[in-house]
Design a protein around this nucleic acid. Structure first.
Lengths: 168, 168
DNA sequence: TAGTAGTTTCAATAAGTACTGAAAGCTTAG
DNA sequence: CTAAGCTTTCAGTACTTATTGAAACTACTA
């Protein structure tokens, strides 16, 4: 397989995988391209390689920066801005976990807290089932939350090491 | 808060959360409703509670059964089919992980394997960056894959226990 | 300070995805 | 066998989300 083909397939695969996870396709494709490119790229480079419009490129680059996955880079002598992605996949995944946790798990926790306070007779089967399920989800969410915190703080080797020890 | 309000909010929250994860809103809402309902519900019950059409209900119930999250139940004397959700959140999450792993991680692995075999001079910076990144992603994916296998097989208490030990 | 290179915004539009409802297909009971 | 009750399918439509592209904006440079 030629490099150009392989690159294209990687970008396309990454994009469609992202779609299944509620992430914008273009955002994932820009990220993929930056991941496999050693040097920083300009917005125009991205537009050309991915055949996307200026607006689309701009919006998704900004989003990637916001997620902490891409950095703006100034190249001396150049007036344009360039962009560079963090290449360490472990760091990338920790960053994604961190952001999704903040944006989703924490708000969910708040909602569940409120839902726990339902009025009504606890001997009523419907009320009981509801509070029990919500309670269990809350427990699960808070345990997940804690575990992810550990994972985010963890050093790569330490984490996999511990996990392998768990597996025995 | 009244039970009916709380139920409605839970269903709505679950639905919008699902959307962010690439899961159909209706599917998540049906699941949410079944989760908090102690007794089995018929398709008509679901249609009414969620104000959705017959086709929509049918399609998403089938999908939930396919994911292993909901079971068809026969109630003696009734001609209709009824549906019941697994209530143990730990089992539910393991099931979801199992399915997504099968549907996404395994195909990704296959693609990455192929991409690793790029022709070209390894001293070329572009080729080098590409093979390195793909190699790292592959390592990451296969480690994740193994860890998730462990998690899927794990007994709840054992798993959280080990994780807590890790945290110290 | 005007001109130029580069960046950002956003209304219009396109693309993608989900939902409806009616019709066709089953299955069971009489 | 056939009518009633229930389930499944799917073409058309509605809804949601992503993308374009041109105009407005910003910042540098001479």
């Amino acid at each position: 397989m030629k490099l150009s083909e392989a690159k294209a397939q990687f970008i396309q695969t990454w994009g469609s995988l992202a779609t299944q996870w509620g992430i914008n396709k273009t955002m994932a494709q820009i990220h993929a391209l930056l991941l496999i490119t050693p040097n920083p790229l300009s917005q125009d480079d991205l537009m050309e390689e991915l055949s996307i419009s200026r607006g689309n490129a701009n919006m998704n680059i900004r989003e990637l920066i916001d997620w902490g996955l891409v950095d703006r880079v100034i190249i001396p002598g150049e007036r344009k801005e360039f962009f560079l992605a963090e290449k360490d996949i472990w760091k990338v995944s920790r960053q994604i976990i961190k952001e999704r946790k903040k944006r989703e798990l924490e708000p969910l926790n708040k909602v569940l807290e409120q839902l726990q306070e339902v009025e009504g007779d606890k001997r009523n089967a419907e009320v009981k089932a509801f509070t029990e399920t919500i309670g269990n989800i809350r427990k699960f969410v808070s345990q997940t939350d804690k575990s992810l915190d550990t994972l985010i703080k963890a050093d790569e080797n330490w984490f996999w090491g511990s996990l392998i020890k768990m597996i025995k």
